[in-house]
Design a protein around this nucleic acid. Structure first.
Lengths: 108, 108
DNA sequence: ACAATATATTAGCAATCACTAATATGTGTG
DNA sequence: CACACATATTAGTGATTGCTAATATATTGT
């Protein structure tokens, strides 16, 4: 049974998924925690930019960080969030199949 | 098994969830199809605005519309998308519980 | 064909967002 | 303490987004 959720908290949460860099970060740390530098290298990104998106994802409660010496390791919050990320791909695969079979659809 | 999905198509898809009005539309038609006017009334929204978001959601492949006379009925694409919407609430409930128990967390 | 209703589209503007560069903070090491 | 490295923060700017109002298109009934 799913309880009522506040729409504004929900939007803050969903905001986490609305940017390509953030999605790439989530995918990068979906199965293993990584330091900021590792993520920056992974995405071939800008350190400042990645740090900002990490702060955003942390604010959205999608990831958690732990400090270890001079490194900060980030990981996806928990299995529920990982499942949600997988669920995106499941739905997307379904959509892509549909687009593939029915070329009468105009993909805007 | 989940296949590779194109990141840009994925972002287009996820864009559908990044706006409060669009989420409200999705929730409004999650279990039953509705006309544009019904949705406008439901959300107490602006007709032009809602139409634009409906076009966006259709482009994201999250909803489908069918014309019946002078009405257009919109509904959530399929069960997979409905499940995804439910999944949002499941994860969110978990996050809210966590915020509720651990007030040492600063919710920015 | 005309009026009424339903929906879509367009244009313009204000608000939000994402990026870069520069700088600040924090942590370990010689 | 000074230096190197890791990460965070800030400010500024260009791009994207979402809203409203106005208008266009489509469908039905008379």
């Amino acid at each position: 049974m799913v309880e009522k959720v506040d729409i504004d908290i929900k939007m803050k949460f969903l905001h986490g998924f609305s940017n390509k860099t953030r999605i790439q970060i989530l995918e990068s740390i979906k199965t293993e925690e990584k330091t900021v530098t590792q993520i920056v290298d992974d995405l071939n990104g800008n350190q400042s930019n990645i740090s900002q998106h990490l702060a955003c994802l942390k604010g959205c409660r999608l990831i958690v960080g732990r400090q270890d010496g001079k490194y900060v390791y980030y990981r996806v919050r928990n299995q529920l969030v990982r499942d949600l990320l997988t669920n995106f791909d499941v739905v997307l695969e379904d959509i892509q199949n549909d687009i593939a079979c029915c070329n009468s659809h105009i993909y805007q």
